[in-house]
Design a protein around this nucleic acid. Structure first.
Lengths: 335, 335
DNA sequence: CTTATTTACGAAACCGTTTTCGTGTGATGT
DNA sequence: ACATCACACGAAAACGGTTTCGTAAATAAG
């Protein structure tokens, strides 16, 4: 016979309800009985069945983290932060990767509709056109918190960094360094973070009287070969840019690769600044000027907000954006 | 009323057992009835309650991945591989971080004893002295597969790379490049992977008639400050080594840092080779010669083996080591 | 035409907890 | 002495599926 509450009840000549209450430290059980139950439970190494408990209580103690990928150092750090607060609060973290595919994202999120997880943290895929699978979560009372790649249409909390401001700062930094023509390397064309970074970027250009038409925007993808071809094209054109803002880590690394291939010197021929969370940016050749995102803190913050809403009675999450600032670190790639 | 099997049964004037069987495509239900049930279930958007199902069937469809950390690029890639096969097979991935703390590892693993997950993938912490929390898993019929950081005492499958051979190759590579005194940077002192890499390393030294006493081993930790101090000490000693083998990515990066601080030139003053999974090793300054581990494939393999054992009737996992070879990639740090 | 067998479904037990609702006992108040 | 009430516990009904077993009707076998 398995070690269940029932067994404890029989062995101790108690009712299962009594044992259950004792284990949950209910006030209607005497101290003496509680002590007996706890002692015996410890002795026979009783562990509650999480599924029975989840079934009855309607809560699982699991939270889902849905990410486009995990290769990027940003998401690794974010998972770290999320897991840390989850573990501290007794929650379990389920990780799902969408590989930048909406269909996959939908299938994954639909699976949460029925309470498989108590709450969801998500950084959305780039090509999502509608968000029914996400808004339906709210309908079904499973709270949702966005982080980094957010969707502004939904009524929930988002944790972001100061993307627009950083896009602005990146461009201004290059301009101050003397750049006359700056390319912006976008990732996809409809990601909130990329749009904001681009907005800030263009705002700076306007302020400094740059002609927006002359400062190209490259819309890159997850296809490395394609990206490098695009980057190479622009860097080999006769009036190539002398500055580059990379909107995500990956495209910056690809730019480094291309510069090597076609023997462009950074920062002499071209200056590069990138959004990144790379810990070893200073070890690159040349060291990379970054806008370093607080990935770990963003993960922690997002998880904290989600879990707080789970433990409160009123699980309503306010529609708001929590902003944790990034910091621009100057290194040799823009010297 | 919630959308349950019971509701479908009532609305369709069937017994709940009939509906359940129909949904599971049981042979004892007629095609006509199945069709009715499926159609209606789809219409009202029925989704089975995973906890009820798990409770009754004794299986959850979840697998646990227990890691020391996720900052390292190796484990990021491993998660990627694991998640990919899990998702394909309809399993859910729960991620737990031990932060190199046995107590934490024990607490996490104990939580699996009662069937919270169907199987466990683990890369163990360094300072584990006993493995009761792990061996108990077998007793309780939850299969376990090690990957990378394994424990050879337990009767289960491990997925590793050819650590010994690579340690050997790393040393030989440096010797061929002319190194006369080579330091080995270990991580902790009792990690299977580190021991094997060290063994191979020393085997090469012996073969080339190096005096083992003259080629130091540094036992490093997770404390970056401490590590750098150790590395700095040895690199500033009057007969410093002219070659370094880093047993894990982290200590190699720390060595790079120290070399910068004390202005040692790589590879002129000192050559460096490191075990790593870093995708951008070629972009470092100087580009880093690596023994590149097949992290993604190891994750996939480990997950495949685990899940296969879950779907088979006899869930016995053989005691064996699956070895996926790493590849030595020469770059400028050992030129 | 009777008997054996398949087919298609229903009733009910069960998985292990939680929770509601009693109920008997002793203490308290008047 | 009698009503009142807190206290400590038990019985039983959930939670939402799965599974075993039983059985009526339909079909096949003899």
């Amino acid at each position: 016979m398995n070690i269940t509450i029932k067994k404890i009840a029989e062995d101790l000549q108690l009712a299962v309800s009594t044992v259950s209450k004792a284990l949950r430290d209910s006030h209607e059980i005497s101290a003496a009985t509680k002590a007996r139950v706890f002692a015996y439970a410890a002795e026979i190494d009783y562990m509650p069945n999480p599924y029975a408990s989840s079934l009855k209580r309607g809560r699982s103690g699991n939270i889902a983290v849905v990410l486009p990928e995990v290769a990027d150092s940003f998401f690794s750090a974010a998972i770290n932060g999320i897991e840390e607060v989850a573990q501290a609060q007794g929650y379990h973290v389920m990780v799902y990767l969408t590989h930048e595919n909406v269909k996959t994202e939908q299938a994954i999120v639909r699976d949460f509709w029925n309470g498989r997880v108590d709450g969801v943290l998500i950084s959305i895929t780039s090509d999502a056109k509608d968000y029914n699978h996400l808004s339906e979560l709210a309908t079904r009372n499973v709270p949702l918190v966005f982080f980094d790649r957010i969707c502004e249409d939904l009524n929930t909390t988002s944790v972001v960094t100061n993307d627009q401001e950083c896009g602005y700062n990146a461009a201004r930094h290059l301009i101050h360094r003397g750049c006359k023509k700056i390319a912006f390397l976008a990732l996809f064309d409809d990601l909130s973070i990329v749009r904001k970074r681009l907005n800030g970027f263009q705002q700076a250009l306007r302020e400094y009287n740059f002609d927006l038409q002359q400062n190209p925007i490259l819309y890159l993808t997850n296809d490395e070969r394609f990206n490098k071809e695009q980057i190479r094209n622009i860097l080999e054109s006769k009036d190539r840019p002398d500055g580059i803002v990379g909107s995500v880590e990956k495209v910056v690394m690809q730019t480094y690769d291309v510069c090597r291939e076609i023997r462009l010197s950074i920062p002499n021929d071209i200056r590069i600044i990138g959004f990144s969370h790379l810990q070893i940016a200073h070890l690159l050749n040349p060291s990379l000027t970054t806008i370093t995102q607080p990935a770990f803190e963003m993960g922690k913050m997002a998880a904290s907000i989600l879990i707080k809403s789970l433990t409160k009675k009123s699980s309503m999450i306010r529609k708001e954006q929590i902003m944790i600032p990034s910091v621009l670190i100057e290194r040799d790639s823009t010297k």
